[in-house]
């Protein structure tokens, strides 16, 4: 099996049995950011730390991408194999809302307020045959 690597380092803990999103927290005002940044967009402080943002949240808003985007979109897909995908903002326990692809891709399966879980999924392979991974959310399975 091809080795799996994050498409972009620093967005989520990987490899991991229990991956979570990674962001930054301002050590002065406490506001969070995703992706992590060295300065705070709320108070301009330059004192921030990397923190885990968790792996679950609630769907704050959503849409469905019905057509294949132009460049810079770059995945395994071609115009023939493209499937619509969901896009949403998921509100995390710290209050931050993170934009994400969603596994669900039909209006019947998406609703504001849904409980959502994180998963790590392949995007494409690089020139060395390594599989590049990104994050997305999906509706939590009801207990």
């Amino acid at each position: 099996m091809a080795s799996q690597h994050p498409l972009q380092p620093g967005l989520f803990s990987w490899p991991s049995e229990d991956p979570e999103l990674l962001g930054s927290r301002c050590m002065d005002c406490g506001e969070h950011a995703f992706p992590s940044q060295d300065s705070c967009r709320a108070c301009s402080s330059e004192q921030t730390e990397i923190v885990g943002l968790g792996r679950s949240g609630r769907l704050w808003t959503w849409t469905i991408q019905s057509f294949m985007p132009k460049s810079p979109y770059l995945t395994y897909e071609t115009a023939e194999t493209f499937h619509p995908y969901g896009v949403g903002y998921v509100e995390l326990p710290c209050g931050l809302k993170v934009e994400s692809r969603l596994r669900e891709n039909s209006p019947e399966t998406l609703a504001i307020g849904l409980d959502m879980d994180l998963e790590i999924v392949p995007v494409r392979s690089d020139d060395d045959g390594r599989q590049l991974m990104t994050f997305q959310f999906h509706a939590a399975v009801s207990p």
Binding site: L7, Q8, L11, P35, T63, Q65, P69, S71, P72, Y73, L74, T75, Y85, V87, E99, S100, R101, V123, T134
Partner: peptide
């Protein structure tokens, strides 16, 4: 960073 566009989030329509 590039991941944002490559994974299909960089669309004003969305």
């Amino acid at each position: 960073d590039d991941w944002y566009g490559e994974t299909g989030l960089m669309l004003t329509t969305q």
